[in-house]
């Protein structure tokens, strides 16, 4: 019996400009319910890789599938949660934490009319999960960078995704919050079976939770359990093959 993987990239090539490949011959399969850390040097192509996975970019050659469907035409998008790298408020919006997190219910709750009670409860729950209850109605701009980041993490969680992609969610977040985010993701993963792709330089915090570490540097240069990572690569910013 062959189970359809959540994510399947096959021989993917990609470049933003013709003639300059950012990713070359990348193949990656992530089964439903896996918790995978993606690491690699700056410019290695991590963000590009997850954007291809989510169907935001299309491979120049090769295929990108989500649950067996072409990623850019995936039919169950509301099950996807994405926190972009350096997420920040679009424009000059004076949004509060609650308004930001509520935006995460948009795809599930529909576009028209106010949020129903159940959706508002889920928003409050997501805010509590990242420990921002006390500032829930404060404008995001008045919070520290790390707290803003946590608001965006809550936004991604509020949609109750079954595939969650976080691109460097802990940049600017203190060690304590990194640990609590890691523990939270571990719970989502083990209790709800959420498939998680976690892009980070500092994968130290998630190292003990993930089954798999993928190192990206134009191609996939390592893919396996974190403990099997060759010693020279242990700090991924030093991944000079």
């Amino acid at each position: 019996m062959h189970v359809i993987p959540a994510v399947a990239l096959e021989h993917v090539d990609f470049g933003y400009a013709p003639g300059r490949r950012v990713l070359e011959d990348v193949s990656l399969e992530v089964r439903e319910g896996e918790f995978v850390a993606i690491a690699g040097p700056n410019g290695g192509g991590k963000t590009t890789l997850v954007r291809i996975v989510l169907g935001l970019e299309r491979p120049a050659s090769g295929t990108a599938l989500l649950y067996g469907e072409p990623a850019h035409r995936f039919s169950r998008r509301r099950t996807l949660g994405y926190l972009a790298q350096r997420a920040e408020l679009g424009g000059d919006a004076p949004a509060t934490v609650r308004e930001v997190v509520a935006a995460g219910r948009l795809a599930c709750a529909g576009l028209v009319g106010p949020l129903r009670r159940r959706d508002r409860e889920l928003v409050a729950e997501a805010i509590a999960r990242v420990g921002l209850e006390e500032v829930a109605d404060a404008p995001l701009r008045t919070l520290s960078g790390g707290m803003q980041q946590r608001a965006f993490i809550a936004k991604a969680l509020a949609g109750e995704p079954s595939v969650l992609v976080l691109d460097e969610p802990t940049t600017g977040v203190d060690v304590e919050s990194q640990e609590s985010l890691a523990a939270l993701l571990d719970r989502l993963h083990s209790e709800l079976g959420v498939t998680i792709l976690y892009v980070s330089h500092e994968f130290g915090a998630v190292e003990r939770f993930v089954q798999r570490l993928v190192l990206v540097r134009r191609g996939i240069v390592f893919d396996g359990p974190p403990r099997e990572l060759p010693h020279v690569w242990h700090d991924p910013s030093h991944a000079h093959a």
Binding site: L54, G55, L56, R77, R78, L80, G81, Y82, L83, A84, A87, L89, G90, G91, A93, A95, E99, V100, A102, A103, G104, L106, A107, A109, L111, V112, G113, P114, L115, F152, K155, A156, G159, P161, V165
Partner: peptide
Amino acid sequence: RALAGAIVDEEGARVA
């Protein structure tokens, strides 16, 4: 709610 949500995080909304 939709118009405001799209301002808050266009990319995240697009993915979903």
